[in-house]
Write a protein that binds this DNA or RNA. Sequence first.
DNA 1: ATTTCTTGTAGAAATAATTCTACAATGCAC
DNA 2: GTGCATTGTAGAATTATTTCTACAAGAAAT
Lengths: 216, 216
Amino acid sequence: MKLSNNCSFLITDDHSIVRQGISMLINELFLNPKIYMSGNFKDTFKIINETKIDLLILDINFPDGNSISIIKDIKIIQPEIKILIFTAYNEDIYALRYLNSGASGYLNKGSSEEEMKQALTSMILSGKYLTQNVKDRILDSYISKSPINPIEQLSNRELEVARMLIKGYGNLEISDLLNVKKTTVSTFKNRIFEKLEIDNLAALIELFRLYNDDGE
Amino acid sequence: MKLSNNCSFLITDDHSIVRQGISMLINELFLNPKIYMSGNFKDTFKIINETKIDLLILDINFPDGNSISIIKDIKIIQPEIKILIFTAYNEDIYALRYLNSGASGYLNKGSSEEEMKQALTSMILSGKYLTQNVKDRILDSYISKSPINPIEQLSNRELEVARMLIKGYGNLEISDLLNVKKTTVSTFKNRIFEKLEIDNLAALIELFRLYNDDGE
DNA sequence: ATTTCTTGTAGAAATAATTCTACAATGCAC
DNA sequence: GTGCATTGTAGAATTATTTCTACAAGAAAT
């Protein structure tokens, strides 16, 4: 028996296979769903601006300050929209950030189809979806700052810079991309290294591997 | 009109959404396909051992020596099997290596549905699928007879320096340890980067992970 | 409400790394 | 066995990065 009809969905994911897979599940679960798809943020905004969407399934491949602000922007355009983040990135590090910015569900790629169905249903029926792990983290973050994944200590901007460093960008490239001065990048780099108690790029790469923040 | 019936497919991908998406495409394209799926290598082997498979669509999330040797092992069990690598990783870096180990197609995630259909059809009909870019690279590597493992090109001293760089040592530290001038270390570094056709430490670390892995 | 901490930003000075060039010794191809 | 490529080595000049300091806005703590 299918659920709640006439809902509208927007799937944003740069892999068309994934878009197809999700849309298939939606069709299985809901009656007369309207399904929109986009492969990039530009199209997503176009659709959001033109069409009322109930649930946005948003794949974030490169978590950074930018994608955080995108969520905020989307919520400004359609405050009622529900956003389900669907990403390969470690939920320990990112889930709380995204929820904090206006998302109301966080699902890891890697999740089973069953979990995805659960998430879709739950988002539509109750407006949110959280795994037990994420729930626990929210509670933890209220109660105490438990010893955690060191990468979590980084601010959004710092994380952004760290990821670029790991990709092999130099200070100058990063400063260009972020439109800040190169000494600013150096300052970030220093703070990153201080927070993580390391002092070279190789160690940073190692740490990120260790904590499984590889994406995909 | 559907193609070539009774073919058997195995989809290995750790994201069930992706598995679903691909299986849907297969159903669109082929008559009576037998579709098997697995979310990890262990299950893949189980299936390969029990069932004859025509086409394995293999998602490799963490390209490394291990996944290379897996391809080889699979081909030992079923020499006739066709393997299509489906991965988010840069084909420039990985495609040749996988093809060299027994895969016969390489498709980037990010590719359109159309390309995936193309790849599936082509794998079944002609046993291979290569993008123009990959074809070019094969020709290049044939003409210049570049060694399979680029690290082998490094001289002993260069290798020594490369290893230290990977451990996180800076130029000055290395020059102290080796009792040479720091500009000498810079020269080595340059030659290493030139030979390996890279230009930053992150790429060096990546290369060494890839080629120096004891998984093979 | 007010201090204190964190975050994002940068300049000046100091230090490190790169580039370009060079050269002798070894290795290897013809 | 002579020429040409590779290897180990550096200096001078140029660039990139780090360090140290600073400051304003916002968050958190008291």
